[in-house]
């Protein structure tokens, strides 16, 4: 079965390349532009990994992460923050919320892919 990846970002022009990359690497992809929509999709679609932006309209990425980590049934979901916020404080906060990784924008595509592959390989 294909692994499922959820891309959460409100910048369509960032979602486009990410979606393309994931599909090219043979993953099932869904996208969400807001935190609320992301949470809906997580419950209904159960992704294996989430690429999560932090600055989102409404519920922000930190909060989304926190909500996921509070639910036992989601504890296998890998969370990777993808954010333009690059200060060490932001990163520490993200990792403090028990995310699996924190990648700062802009990123190299193969770097992101290798991280995702590693995380999903561990899982199985």
């Amino acid at each position: 079965m294909k692994k499922r990846i959820l891309i959460v970002d409100d910048e369509p022009n960032i979602v486009v390349p990410l979606e393309f990359l994931m599909k090219q690497n043979n993953y099932d992809v869904q996208t969400a532009g807001t935190g609320e929509k992301a949470l809906d999709l997580i419950s209904s679609w159960k992704p294996d990994l989430i690429l999560l932006d932090i600055m989102l309209p409404g519920i922000d990425g930190y909060e989304v992460c926190q909500k996921i980590r509070q639910e036992k049934k989601f504890n296998t979901i890998k969370i990777v923050f993808l954010s333009a916020m690059a200060r060490s404080i932001d990163i520490a906060k993200g990792m403090g919320l028990a995310a699996d990784d924190y990648i700062t924008k802009p990123f190299a595509t193969d770097f992101v892919m290798s991280k995702i592959k590693a995380l999903l390989a561990n899982n199985s």
Binding site: E11, I14, A84, M85, A86, K105, F107, T109
Partner: peptide, 21 residues
């Protein structure tokens, strides 16, 4: 500084990722 870099990073992310693709 933090804001401007943040704002610069967003379009840059898109540009770099797409150019690599």
């Amino acid at each position: 500084i933090s804001t401007v870099t943040h704002e610069l990073r967003t379009p840059l992310t898109s540009v770099r990722a797409l150019a690599e693709i």
